[in-house]
Simulated scan of single mutants.
Amino acid sequence: MIDLAGAMLKEPYGPLGDERYRGCLAEIKASGEAMLERVGKLLDLAAVEAGSLHLEPRALDLNDVVADCVARLQGEAARGRIVMRTSFSTDIGDLEADERSVSRAASLVIENAIRRSVAGSQIIVSTGSAERAAIAVRVRGTSAGHAPPAEAPRGDVEDGLALPRALVEANGGRLQLSARPEDGTLVEIIMPTHRAANG
């Protein structure tokens, strides 16, 4: 469906005619891509919950992992006219975890923040220490101007965090969400340090 709609939009056999046909095809293509992405996430979530996710824990520099995620998603934020800022702590401990799953969890949380933001909003991605020998990735979304953000219902926000939450928990960490009108939405990925992970 996605490939066929994309092919028709290129008009290889001649013009589509009325411009409304092009709009309909673009909508079909976008809906198909969104459905494919959602099914993919559900399959990944099922794999994590079934215990079939293969983890390769090793020492990681969390700042480097998160910086790579931000770099990959800067373009998407810019297209939506959303400002993405970073603040990385230089005194956090080493993290022992599976790089691929931690990176994917952080990317999904940032993507979720971008998709729920409007033009002129700001997203702050930071790292720092957390309680009990843990370190954290924090993603805070704030609204444009000084008006309170129009937050999505908490259940909708949580729905977008199901897969990253499962990926974080598979690595021995946890994900928590807090939302206040004056501060925006804050999602924290909290992971044990290398020392805590090894007792």
Results as ranks from 00 to 15, higher is better:
residue 2 I to E: 06
residue 4 L to A: 15
residue 6 G to F: 09
residue 10 K to P: 00
residue 10 K to E: 05
residue 11 E to T: 10
residue 11 E to L: 11
residue 14 G to F: 12
residue 15 P to C: 12
residue 20 R to P: 00
residue 21 Y to S: 07
residue 23 G to H: 08
residue 24 C to S: 06
residue 25 L to H: 08
residue 25 L to S: 07
residue 27 E to T: 01
residue 27 E to P: 00
residue 28 I to V: 13
residue 33 E to I: 07
residue 33 E to K: 05
residue 36 L to E: 02
residue 37 E to V: 02
residue 39 V to S: 01
residue 39 V to M: 04
residue 43 L to P: 05
residue 43 L to I: 13
residue 43 L to W: 11
residue 47 A to R: 13
residue 48 V to E: 04
residue 49 E to I: 12
residue 51 G to L: 03
residue 51 G to S: 05
residue 51 G to F: 05
residue 52 S to P: 08
residue 52 S to T: 14
residue 52 S to I: 15
residue 55 L to Q: 09
residue 56 E to C: 06
residue 57 P to S: 09
residue 60 L to Y: 07
residue 61 D to T: 09
residue 66 V to P: 03
residue 66 V to K: 04
residue 69 C to E: 05
residue 72 R to C: 02
residue 73 L to D: 06
residue 74 Q to D: 14
residue 75 G to C: 02
residue 75 G to D: 03
residue 76 E to Q: 11
residue 79 R to W: 02
residue 79 R to A: 04
residue 81 R to N: 14
residue 82 I to W: 09
residue 83 V to I: 13
residue 83 V to T: 14
residue 84 M to V: 09
residue 86 T to Y: 15
residue 90 T to E: 03
residue 91 D to A: 14
residue 95 L to C: 05
residue 97 A to T: 07
residue 100 R to T: 04
residue 102 V to K: 04
residue 102 V to E: 02
residue 103 S to L: 10
residue 105 A to T: 00
residue 106 A to E: 02
residue 109 V to R: 00
residue 110 I to W: 07
residue 111 E to H: 13
residue 112 N to S: 15
residue 113 A to P: 09
residue 116 R to N: 12
residue 117 S to A: 15
residue 118 V to L: 12
residue 119 A to V: 02
residue 122 Q to S: 14
residue 127 T to S: 03
residue 129 S to K: 08
residue 131 E to S: 10
residue 132 R to Q: 11
residue 133 A to F: 03
residue 134 A to T: 15
residue 134 A to N: 15
residue 135 I to A: 02
residue 135 I to Q: 04
residue 137 V to R: 01
residue 140 R to I: 15
residue 140 R to S: 13
residue 142 T to K: 14
residue 143 S to M: 04
residue 143 S to K: 03
residue 146 H to E: 08
residue 151 E to D: 11
residue 152 A to G: 06
residue 152 A to R: 08
residue 153 P to H: 13
residue 153 P to V: 12
residue 155 G to S: 11
residue 155 G to P: 03
residue 156 D to S: 09
residue 158 E to K: 10
residue 160 G to V: 06
residue 160 G to W: 10
residue 161 L to S: 05
residue 164 P to Y: 04
residue 164 P to I: 02
residue 165 R to V: 07
residue 166 A to Y: 14
residue 166 A to T: 13
residue 166 A to V: 14
residue 168 V to M: 01
residue 170 A to H: 11
residue 172 G to R: 10
residue 174 R to M: 06
residue 174 R to S: 07
residue 181 P to A: 13
residue 181 P to F: 11
residue 182 E to C: 01
residue 182 E to L: 07
residue 185 T to G: 06
residue 186 L to E: 06
residue 186 L to R: 08
residue 187 V to D: 04
residue 187 V to R: 01
residue 188 E to D: 13
residue 191 M to G: 03
residue 191 M to E: 06
residue 194 H to M: 06
residue 194 H to Y: 03
residue 195 R to L: 13
residue 196 A to L: 06
residue 196 A to I: 02
residue 197 A to R: 06
residue 199 G to I: 09
residue 199 G to T: 07
